[in-house]
């Protein structure tokens, strides 16, 4: 009797799984579309880029687009600048945000929640309207056309702080209490309990910050002046002329510059493992 029930249960489970796969494959196709589109465009002649009706596969495959793309800008320099900026921003942001998040989520003091909301409010102001005053500050600091103009302001991310705060809130109080009894100070609790139990959240921040900083356009454009300090995203914009755009080369460039972000994403995924917090409690 029990066996029979289990079998039918397993059968319906298999059907479910097949349905889920079909659904996921459909979603994936929709999601991959721009990717196919970019690959296809990057290999087309200008004439075919806008062929009507649209062609998925170029009639004449133009690998040389990648060569032209490569010759169009000092990509190695751009890559180095972008890498420096991205790594520095991630380190600084994780450091500043996690400390603030710990304070906002776990420490009791006067004005805490008000300060949190004010900090969160930073996100609610469109950059367009603070751009000129922000640039004035960068100028007063003497940072114009230096990488730190893009790096240091990005440390103070309400997004990362908010995300970590929400995750710190989920960490069971018991862990903290136990640590306190063991004589741990606040820094140890912050590091040993909060940080070590928030790997999925920290990974999320690393992925997002990497992606945003890597692709960031308007801030670097305003704060950095020329190819000495420029980033990949700005280099890509150089395919856009005053009136015309080299779409095939731009797509080629976009594809190449996307690769590091994809790699970080794939690497980051291994930290999405069930039950980190609970293993802490059991131990």
């Amino acid at each position: 009797m029990v066996k029979k029930v289990k079998k039918s249960y397993n059968n319906s489970k298999t059907i479910n799984k097949v349905l889920i796969h079909i659904l996921l494959i459909l979603i994936s196709l929709a999601m991959l579309m721009p990717f196919f589109f970019m690959i296809s465009t990057s290999l087309k002649s200008t004439d075919e880029v806008f062929a009507i009706p649209y062609k998925w596969i170029p009639e004449k495959v133009m690998w040389e687009n990648y060569v032209y793309m490569w010759e169009n800008a000092p990509w190695i320099k751009y890559f180095a600048n972008t890498a420096i900026i991205t790594v520095a921003v991630i380190l600084g942001q994780v450091f500043v945000s996690s400390m603030a998040a710990y304070s906002f989520s776990r420490l009791e003091f006067k004005g805490r929640d008000a300060m949190f909301f004010i900090y969160l409010g930073t996100m609610m102001i469109p950059f367009q309207v603070v751009m000129i005053p922000t640039f004035s500050i960068i100028k007063d600091l003497g940072w114009v056309n230096e990488l730190k103009s893009v790096i240091i302001p990005a440390f103070f991310s309400p997004f990362a702080t908010f995300l970590l705060r929400q995750f710190f809130l989920e960490i069971p109080k018991e862990l903290e209490e136990a640590a306190k009894i063991d004589g741990c100070g606040y820094f140890r609790i912050y590091w040993e309990i909060m940080m070590k139990n928030s790997k999925p959240a920290l990974t999320t921040i690393v992925i997002f910050t990497f992606m945003w900083t890597w692709n960031d356009f308007i801030r670097p454009l305003i704060f950095l002046n020329n190819s000495e300090t420029w980033t990949l995203a700005l280099g890509l914009a150089k395919f856009q002329g005053t009136y015309t755009t080299q779409w095939n080369q731009m797509m080629a460039g976009s594809l190449i510059t996307m690769i590091p972000v994809l790699v970080i994403f794939v690497l980051g995924q291994q930290y999405f493992i069930q039950g980190i917090v609970m293993s802490g409690i059991k131990g």
Binding site: F135, K139, V144, I222, W230
Partner: peptide, 22 residues
């Protein structure tokens, strides 16, 4: 000659530079 590249947001950057005395 040192280039100040305005990118494809010419007006936005130019206005910001001028506004800040740069």
């Amino acid at each position: 000659i040192e280039w100040i590249d305005l990118g494809n947001e010419r007006f936005q950057k130019l206005l910001t530079l001028i506004s800040s005395g740069e």
